[in-house]
């Protein structure tokens, strides 16, 4: 199970390092979203940091949706998904492999977009960075847990570009609320202790929906 999950992860990372399509497209989209939010709001230097948590999370939500959609479009071309399932592979392992790949992809994108956001919105990152990394990883795992589950659904339905966000955005509200609250506390210099409720909720969300994904993924992909 762990071996095959890692094999799937290695496959996805190899595709990514050879084509660099996924990361490039979401980094460009992330940068553009941050620019558009900053320009549209035109915040003064004093109010800009207050805006930062929401800008960060909305940006990551939309880039994440695109990234995870792409990771399944790749599987659908030439029926890769069907071929994977023909082999002696536990669907749960496929889910875990895809999930880890998506979390890594999102983290790589954030590592590039975050400094720009900090620069544009006058946020001091240096002291807040360790806490911020914890918050982002917790958020990424919860986000990817649901997005990986429903990405496999949406890729096989008509109008998938619309359907994935429509299904996911309401389900992801706790990640968005918790992420924004925890990010605001960390950026304000309160550290992780300043947002124990939000952090606890993100952790609970991760546990619940990673488990649900492992258990339910088979129902989504089996024919």
């Amino acid at each position: 199970m762990i071996g095959s999950a890692l094999a799937i992860l290695a496959k996805d990372l190899r595709i990514e390092t050879r084509t660099r399509e996924g990361l490039t497209s979401i980094v460009v989209l992330g940068v553009l979203l941050v620019l558009v939010f900053s320009v549209a709001h035109d915040p003064t230097p004093s109010e800009a940091p207050r805006l930062a948590p929401a800008v960060i999370w909305v940006t990551f939500t939309f880039t994440g949706l695109l990234a995870i959609q792409r990771s399944f479009v790749v599987e659908r071309e030439q029926d890769c998904l069907a071929a994977l399932l023909v082999g002696p592979l536990d669907p749960a392992a496929l889910y875990v492999g895809k999930l880890l790949g998506n979390v890594i992809l999102l983290a790589a994108m954030q590592a590039m977009v975050l400094p720009l956001t900090a620069l544009l919105l006058h946020v001091e990152l240096a002291g807040a960075l360790p806490g911020l990394i914890v918050v982002l990883l917790l958020g990424n795992l919860g986000f990817a847990a649901l997005a990986t589950l429903f990405g496999a659904v949406a890729v096989r339905v008509r109008a998938r570009e619309v359907l994935l966000p429509v299904l996911l955005l309401p389900l992801l509200v706790p990640v968005l609320v918790g992420g924004v609250k925890a990010t605001a506390a960390v950026l304000a210099g309160e550290g992780l202790a300043g947002a124990t409720q939000a952090i606890g909720m993100l952790g609970a969300f991760d546990v619940i929906f990673t488990t649900a994904g492992v258990l339910l993924f088979e129902q989504v992909v089996r024919d």
């Binding site: 339905v157 706790p174 609320v177 909720m201 619940i208 649900a212 339910l216 129902q219």
Partner: peptide
């Protein structure tokens, strides 16, 4: 599609307590 919808129906209710907690923030 019936199976996908069932997965969404279950995930939706699993999300209720978490959303409940989230909106209380």
């Amino acid at each position: 599609v019936a199976r996908w919808a069932a997965v969404l129906g279950i995930v939706g209710v699993l999300d209720v307590p978490v959303i409940h907690y989230a909106v209380r923030l």
